[in-house]
Amino acid sequence: MTELAQAVVNGLQMGFLYALVAVGLTIIWGLMEMINFAHGEFLMLGMFGAWWLSAGFHLDPLLAIVPIALAMYLFGMLVYQQLMRRVQGGDPFTQIFATIGLLFLLQNAVVAGFTSDYRFVNDTFLQKLGGVRLTLLGVTFAVPLLLAAGLALLLFLALYLLIERTEFGLALQATSEDRDAARLVGIRPQRMFAVAWGVGAALVAIAGAILVNFFSVYPQVGLQFTVLAYAIVALGGFGSILGTLLAALLVGVIQSVTVVYLPPAFKDAFVFASYLLIGLFRPQGLFGRF
């Protein structure tokens, strides 16, 4: 029983990190309805950036969040303006094609720069807290993961307020609902899309900088997260920020509970099996708006 409770708690903590990984995609795919196969590569860039700043400049990954978020915000806008804007009007498959090219490019640019070796960060703030644990009713909380989850939740809430409560967020939503109508009330859709790509890239890169405290980095690390992120966004019901959080928590719990009973290879399989099961009863996603 305690084992199960422990698994649920661990899963919830991972879930907050997954939420941060997925929410960038919620904006790009869910709200703006553009497909990005290179989402995990944005994450990988964030992780590599944090590793590089940590190994080369002794900057803690948590502090590296600021420069990484800025750089990836600009990079996301660049990707939109130079590539995605051009393929936006065409068949959706063209977006897939373009972002697969981007995936090859980014992944292998990193291979060229840093080789395919696995990298680890050392002596970060969170890792130094590694031994500190809290025990509550027989369930242990590792403080580093707890802090990371808390940080992810804070960022998530900030984003939620940005999208739901600010004028900018409303303009973004208006653009996703109806581009022409948005234009009529003075919103520049192209600008909104660029910002959406920037924010999406920055968020997932921040997630990368946090994850680097717990996971090794290598150029191919992205795909597994891309796949999970798509499942989370779909489960959360496209474009629903809160739905993404709940779906991410669910995914985290499913993963960690699966591992209690089955070989680790099945942890993602069970996430997707749950997706199918849920899909059969709620074809519009768990938290779909319609």
């Binding site: 590539l83 051009r86 393929v87 063209t94 094609f97 090219g101």
Partner: peptide, 11 residues
């Protein structure tokens, strides 16, 4: 691939 995509806007 990226260049093909970017310069053939509708694929």
């Amino acid at each position: 691939i990226v260049v093909i995509a970017a310069f053939r806007p509708t694929g």
